[in-house]
Amino acid sequence: MTEEEMDSRNAKSAPSTGADGVAGVHEAVLEEIQRAVLADLRPVSALASSGILTLILMIFFAATGSAVAWYLGLGGFEALHAYQRALIFPALLIASWLAAVACAREMRPASGMRMGPIAVIFCATALPLVFLMALHNYSAQNFVTEGVPCLLLGLKVAIPTGVGMVLILRRGFVLDWSRAGFAAGALSGLAGVVMLELHCPNPKAFHAMVWHVAVVVVSAVLGFALGMIADRVRIRATL
């Protein structure tokens, strides 16, 4: 059987314009929809383009991360050599741009391809690799005792940033809150990492690879979980 024959067979089984008005849709249903829509018809201004939304998210991300670091002190930035800065900060910028694009796409239905698993794997592996290349102190002394405070400090920045991200996301119409939560969590976590890179003077590679990157992982997972809960609550509310 050829594609043409299959098309013709499909076409035969597709509903045609019937006695009930518009091809298979009952007049009563159509009228009810129109009545409901017209009852609440007000002009709306279109949401900004995805590029502008990405820019807004990036500005918010950069502002929170750097403002907290400025407040706490820029010891980390001062401790880094120029080549280390040139490796670490552009990598953070690229990862956060990817997360911001993913966030902006979740705000509008049919706004383009979603970030695939390759992008997520790239982000998850690129940052630790950059830290491994940029920092040359491979000591693991006081690994946990020095690491936990950094993780907590990063999360202290990531969580309020995440709340702000959600407020921005709510300006759009998110269809899948778990995906949106993951993207917003990752971006908020990256704000935490930016703050840590500016503030934390610890030069150990494993410290940054594990504890700094963990801020992104934890906040992305947290965002995903909260998004999933939000979706479930929304579905339960309509039961």
């Binding site: 249903v29 009810e32 709306v44 949401l47 383009s49 509008r108 119409f173």
Partner: peptide, 15 residues
Amino acid sequence: QETWMRVHRARHTYR
């Protein structure tokens, strides 16, 4: 009907 209600709520996101 549910789709149209959502479309109505989301209409500002259409570019």
